[in-house]
Simulated scan of single mutants.
Amino acid sequence: MNTKIVMTSSALFYGVIGILFSFLPNEIAGYLNVESNIITILFLKIMSALYLGFGILNWMAKETLIGGIYNKPIAFGNLMHFCVGAITLVKVVSNIKTHLEIVISLTLVYVIFAILFVYIFRTNPTKTKKKK
């Protein structure tokens, strides 16, 4: 499996979410009907930093071998994030009444990335021959 595609797409996903949380925290809180106070904005901005950090990590590691024993911390960090996120979102989907389309979309993205990172974590990478 070519991990470059997975790492690039996850980096872009993290980056988009991180930028949205960083620049539009008041608007996101308002859209989700969450009280927009200093603590809510603080948590959204801290989440933004986490997403942007993971995004830049994946972007910078996209050219390296990932899987098996190679770059195990990167693979495991992504695996943990997406698996825990997917489990949490699957639990929430059955109980949520508002913004169901957002939660279902996020759930699908998280489940797909969780499956991909499980595969990456469990298999050994193969080097691809570069054409000259």
Rank of each mutant, 00 (worst) to 15 (best):
G67N: 09
V84C: 06
E63F: 05
V90M: 04
E101R: 10
H99Q: 08
I5T: 15
N71S: 14
T64W: 05
A61M: 14
I39M: 06
E101A: 12
F54W: 06
I96L: 01
V103C: 01
L106G: 13
G68Y: 09
G85V: 05
I102M: 00
V34A: 03
A61F: 14
S22M: 12
K62L: 02
C83A: 11
E35I: 14
N78A: 05
I115N: 01
F121D: 01
M1R: 13
F113T: 11
F117G: 08
A49L: 15
S36C: 11
E101H: 14
I87R: 00
I19T: 05
Y51G: 03
F13N: 11
M7T: 08
K62Q: 14
L44P: 05
Y51W: 11
I19G: 01
L52Q: 06
V118P: 02
V103S: 00
I87F: 10
I69R: 13
W59G: 11
V103W: 06
I17N: 01
I46N: 03
Y14Q: 07
I39L: 07
A114P: 10
Y110S: 13
V6A: 13
G53H: 04
L57M: 13
I46L: 07
I69L: 05
L44M: 07
Y31I: 03
M60H: 10
G15V: 06
V93R: 00
G55W: 07
K91A: 11
N37M: 06
L57H: 05
I120F: 03
A11M: 08
I19R: 02
V6H: 12
G18N: 07
A86R: 06
F82Y: 15
F121Y: 15
K45V: 08
L108W: 09
Y70I: 02
F117T: 11
A49V: 15
G77Q: 08
I56T: 12
N78G: 12
L100G: 03
H81T: 11
